[in-house]
Amino acid sequence: MGIEQRPFSRMSGVGNSHLRRIEAGEASPSLTTIAKIASAFAVEPADLLDETYRLMEQERRSSRA
């Protein structure tokens, strides 16, 4: 699903530059920011964290191979 950052920034209430930095791995979102992003996607914050953990584990496993 492709979402443009500017509209998503307005929808979530998270600044566009902050979203860019989070996406690039240059910033870590606060719990408040995670909650805002989750709300914009109509999911629970835990859903985002579960997916992040799953992806990190997958990356860790592939780097061992």
Rank of each mutant, 00 (worst) to 15 (best):
M1P: 01
M1N: 06
M1E: 09
G2E: 13
I3C: 03
I3P: 00
E4I: 07
E4C: 06
Q5G: 02
Q5M: 11
Q5S: 09
Q5L: 13
R6E: 12
R6G: 06
P7Q: 06
F8E: 00
F8H: 06
S9V: 00
S9N: 03
S9Q: 05
R10M: 08
R10Q: 12
R10K: 15
M11F: 10
M11H: 10
M11K: 14
G13L: 06
G13F: 03
G13S: 09
V14T: 01
V14Y: 01
V14H: 00
G15Y: 07
N16C: 08
N16I: 11
S17A: 15
H18Y: 15
H18I: 12
L19W: 03
L19I: 14
R20L: 03
R21K: 10
R21Q: 05
R21L: 00
R21N: 02
I22R: 03
E23F: 01
E23R: 07
E23G: 06
E23P: 01
A24V: 02
A24H: 08
G25N: 10
G25I: 08
G25T: 08
A27R: 15
A27E: 09
S28P: 02
P29F: 02
P29W: 11
S30T: 15
S30H: 07
L31E: 02
L31P: 00
L31V: 11
L31Y: 12
L31G: 09
T32I: 01
A35S: 14
A35N: 08
A35P: 02
K36G: 01
I37K: 00
I37G: 00
I37D: 01
A38Q: 09
S39G: 13
A40F: 04
A40T: 11
F41W: 12
F41A: 04
F41L: 15
A42T: 12
A42M: 06
V43T: 12
E44G: 03
E44I: 03
E44M: 04
P45G: 07
P45I: 04
A46H: 06
D47Q: 13
D47L: 05
D47R: 09
D47V: 13
L48K: 02
L49R: 14
L49Q: 12
L49S: 08
L49A: 14
L49V: 15
D50G: 10
D50I: 11
E51W: 13
T52V: 12
T52E: 14
Y53A: 12
R54D: 10
L55A: 13
L55Y: 12
L55M: 11
M56V: 08
M56S: 14
M56G: 10
E57C: 13
E57A: 13
E59Y: 12
E59K: 14
R60N: 08
R61M: 10
R61Y: 05
R61T: 05
S62A: 11
S63C: 06
S63M: 13
S63G: 04
R64P: 00
R64D: 05
A65F: 07
A65Y: 05
